[in-house]
Design a protein around this nucleic acid. Structure first.
Lengths: 188, 188, 188, 188
DNA sequence: AATGAATGAGGATTCATTCAT
DNA sequence: AATGAATGAATCCTCATTCAT
């Protein structure tokens, strides 16, 4: 019953931050949506910015886990790993529809603390590692891991945001197609 | 020295909106950055939201023009047109480094007026048209124009944002490489 | 000690609006005078204009009640009723010295909402009714009720304002005298 | 051509102050209505408050003159003098429909300077004098001049304001009737 | 003399945060 | 522990006033 209240706040905040953006979300909005008194939020989080950081860290951890898990036990085939990562993206997306949107806001940079930045960094390093592996095997093109990640993640994000806004119609096949596009973009 | 004051405000606002986002930018910030009294902003723009819309329309117009011009006189080869469009993206980006960032903020949706939406719509329709052409010629893959644009624009944006933040090192060759990746992503 | 804060605001606002007028009263003035934070006002009232309307409705209700009560159980003699109404005026005036001043500001028209206008209308209709009765009995002169009310209320208001400003010295007899003057003005 | 601009400003200000009240009138409003640049107003008047005082003094002077003139050459009959004064009121009202409204705003007190107060005082003293005369002749009742003036002026003002707002329909006969009511109110 | 663009002090209002209950 | 009323700093915006032209 205790962790519940904290979770309710995190859940409510995630939805609001993703749909309305951090600055356009007021603390009373979060409180109301979480069915909690406004003051209660300050029992669990230092302040609004602290809440943002806890949420960011939570999301990026979950995200990492989904991606990591989706890779576990996979054969050494890079293309197959890529498929699993891409699937992980969508798995996470289905579990927490707002997670990716939230994580991909640029202007969070203004508010993220050192720890959050660190975790974000680590996650990307994990991906860079995968890319390096692919490059060494000669199946991924010779661009810096940062560029390759940007191409794949940028595409994915944009497609997803448009699915969310209704501009793009979602289907299982679409995901497969987008994955292929992305792979074609970065394969050697 | 005449239209200067209005321009100074627009310039200052563009930088702040792109770097900090609309909600995190205060009117006094814009005023200070534009070296103008806070009240002066209201002589030229209805209010902060009005300023956003004027700025959005200005940027999207400039952007359209650069893209359109970069296509003028080009042969009927789709791959070549694609090259020119991609180049246009980077040309605009160099002219107005904050323009693309500003234009691509999702949360603008909350504040854009009908006219801005309209112009945004028209610009995308122009691109859709190009994609349809490529699909009919059989050189672009059979995905909806929205998806294809998302893949290319998403990649470009993400790479650009990382160049901006310093995570990715810029070079002429990089642009060529990214263009090739994007083309590989969407070609049939 | 419960509804007190809201009441303190209303009381402070009434005094300031009556003495200085709506436009010349600032929200911080009201807050200070009510010994309340400026933000607190907005917990109880939609905005400054909303506060004006709540106050107006409260005063006109109190005023109506005093007048209505002062008539209750009175014999059917018009002159006697007039006496009671006039007394009601002064009773209300003594209870809420600023009420009449506040209610009689012309420029409220700019800010009153539909409900306030309605209530004002109803109150005057009650008075018109009384006048009509007197006219039918042949004891009040043949002018429109609006004119008769204006003569009596105008006289009363002006005398009262001058008592307030110190130009006229108040006494029990004065009220009786003014009442007689007003009656002489409108009797047949 | 010179005095014209000043007059245009005074004329415009009178209308706006009377219709909207001092605080709700902005200097640019006056400038626009007077077809003058906003800065020009400060060539002729010290500031907005100074303009109010000049205007007040102008109106009260004109008002005094109309009343005084209407008495000139009149026989020594008090009732007749009263008739002339009352007529003067309406004459002034027709010449400068906004003058009376403007002069009768209570909250001017906040802004009037010593001279304006003085002139206001003097004008009322003139009227008091007339009342004293009537009392000595035994035709006006034994109330203080301030009270008697309040009764007459209060009635007149209220009727006039209601004519202006459309609640009361104007006619020549109405004026005569109201005059009679007022006289009945104060006669011995 | 006349203008009106420019200013910034000051007003209304919002909202993160505190704290008494 | 939980609340939400209360606060006042900070925001957007207005407008009296100045001053370069």
């Amino acid at each position: 019953m205790e962790a519940t209240k904290r979770d309710a706040i995190l859940e409510a905040a995630l939805k609001l931050f993703a749909n309305r953006n951090f600055d356009a979300t007021t603390v009373p909005m979060i409180a109301e949506s979480a069915k909690v008194g406004a003051g209660t939020i300050y029992r669990y989080f230092e302040n609004k910015e602290g809440l943002l950081n806890v949420l960011f860290q939570k999301c990026i951890t979950e995200f990492s886990e989904v991606i990591t898990q989706s890779l576990s036990g996979s054969e050494n085939n890079i293309r197959n790993k890529f498929h699993r990562i891409f699937n992980g993206l969508f798995t996470y997306t289905e579990e927490r529809p707002e997670g990716v949107v939230f994580l991909s806001y640029q202007n969070h940079d203004l508010y993220l603390d050192e720890e959050s930045r660190q975790m974000s960094q680590e996650f990307f390093e994990f991906l860079y590692h995968f890319i390096e592996e692919g490059k060494q095997e000669g199946v991924i093109c010779e661009l810096s891991p940062e560029v390759i990640i940007s191409i794949v993640f940028g595409s994915f994000k944009e497609v997803y945001l448009n699915i969310r806004s209704g501009s793009i119609h979602y289907s299982k096949e679409l995901i497969v197609d987008v994955e292929n596009c992305c792979w074609n973009a970065i394969k050697r």
